[in-house]
Design a binder for these strands. Sequence first.
DNA 1: GACTAACGTTTTTTT
DNA 2: AACGTTAGTC
Length: 667
Amino acid sequence: MANAFSFDSLNQAQREAVGALDGPVMILAGAGTGKTRTVTCRIAHMLEKRIPPADILAVTFTNKTAGEMRERISGMVSKKAAADMTVCTFHSLCVRILRGGIDKLGYKRNFSICSHSDQVGIMKQLLVRKGGSDEKVKPDAVLAAISKAKNQGDDPAGIPDDYFATLAVAYQNELRAQNAVDFDDLLLLAEQVLREHADVRTHFQQRYRRVTVDEFQDTNALQMRLLQQLVTAPYHVCVVGDDDQSIYGWRGAEVANILQFEKFFPDPKIIRLEENYRSTHAVLHTANSLIKHNRGRREKILRSTRAGGDPVRIVAMPGDDEEAEFIAEEIIAGKSAVGREWEDFAVLFRTNGQSRKLELALRERKIPYRMVGAQSFYDRREVRDVLAYAQLLVAPDTDVPLLRILNAPNRGIGQATAVLATEWSRQHHESVWQALCDPDFTYQLGGKTRNCIEAFVALIAGAKNRIDINRDNPAEVLNALIKEMEYLPWIERSCKTDSERQQRGEGINSVIESLRSHAAKGKTLQAFLDHSALASDRDDEDLEKKQGATLITLHASKGLEFPIVYLVGLEEGFLPHTRSIAEGTKDEERRLLYVGITRAKDLLTMTYCATRIKWGQQTGCQPSSFICELDDTYLTHTSYDDILGAEPSTDELDNFFGSLKGLLDGI
DNA sequence: GACTAACGTTTTTTT
DNA sequence: AACGTTAGTC
């Protein structure tokens, strides 16, 4: 066995957590208190106590965390033991459950998983079809309502708004007809299978006798139910989280799960980790003074192990241009003067839209940076197209991907034909693919279109046969298919720039490459598609390797830490966001800021602007009301002008007059 | 059926 | 400012 963990390296509370293996345990782990270390040591401890690795299930929220957790445990135990554990996300756990038992609910086992854009596509169609109300309803609004209902454990058919409820029912029927499930259905249906089918339930209960749930504050009501189905007496379940870092309430996360844990599992042992190893006293004190303003918390008092520290700066900026430039300049200055690496810097913002100016400022100065999130790899057109083809090779009966690529590249099957095929399929209660295959349908079309359809059907069916019958490598079949229909040249034609063309090519290649490596590990095409559906680019290793300063949203920053942090846009309306104020969730915004502050190890700077460009229009801003809530013992208030000194360079004067002129022109 | 131009709308966060 | 959608033209 590899070198195991040692109790000596842990503090009192951590030791207690690692030692408490039996019965329900809740670890309240404040920011920077060595949560991951504690959890991984606890699991290593289980293995040391001869608990079979196969008994162990650890559930996380992201694939990346799952991977990291497995990695860290691997370092402490034998390879074999590490491989036999199950460490995965809630969603992939549910896929596992459903691939084996969804047929009990009337779906076929080769169901497909809808991405968000698939969902939007379906909803758009329904809105057209049902077009009863003429006020424009946004697909996202309906989908959000449906998702919320599902995650709260309610029936979407019972949404208060009648029109929404009708759409919800139609949407669900549509998914079922296509043998498809959405993200929330994964949880919903898995819970249902476990609840309704004792054999499945017993199987998983006996399989996973030791369950750990990470980021427990982010779980919703549905996930709690799932957990309750999974864990049986004597309830060897350990949940880890921090209610002060609950920032996904809008997605249905229930802080109640953590606040009322006792209600769900009897007599839990509750352990608090309150020693913070990450931040200086100054940073932590500021964070504590903010979070104090929230009600209904599990009170924790984080203590810093790092006395002193530079004061936290609040800097007033004239506008968002200056904000971006200021930060870029400081990063350059900080790197050379203090000897930091680019990687030591992070800029945190509330909304993705705020990143543009920052990116520009960094790029101008040749500062390498990495953007987390933003345009998702899996949302890129060519990636989604290629994945759609891959999906068809598993199950051509899935309408969404079929309609997606029916005429991509152009093959003479246009929108009119697509509509006819869809209507025919609806009337005959069959899939669109079946319509295309059916002479009764193609008979009514023009000869030219009919030929095009036949060619398309032959193309897909031929490729599918190569995989199913000849057992050819799916990656090569897909690759050949893409080549054969000249997909790349087609998509390149619509590109304006060379770099765009290059990107498209790279997108296609990385999907193929990824499929190749899956296939090499003996994984099926289905497994690959599952992975792609559940992965986000945050999980991508490429990003890890990328060097440079980090640009990241507050939400995405949870769980990360940086020596030097800039938190921008501390303005009323941004943080707290207008929408949160309207929805009465200001507490969550406060937690969001708290998360941001506690990312900083050494230096923290928060900025706000007097004006900001919004929708191409300059608008005035007020400082965030949260600023007044911060205790100012370790706070310094300054402004852009103070820091840049009294003597502006001619450059800056030019800039100033330039912007003044712009302002006057705008009037 | 494909391409282009003008239009309107958008922006919170994402497993 | 930038994107997606739509209407109009070839």
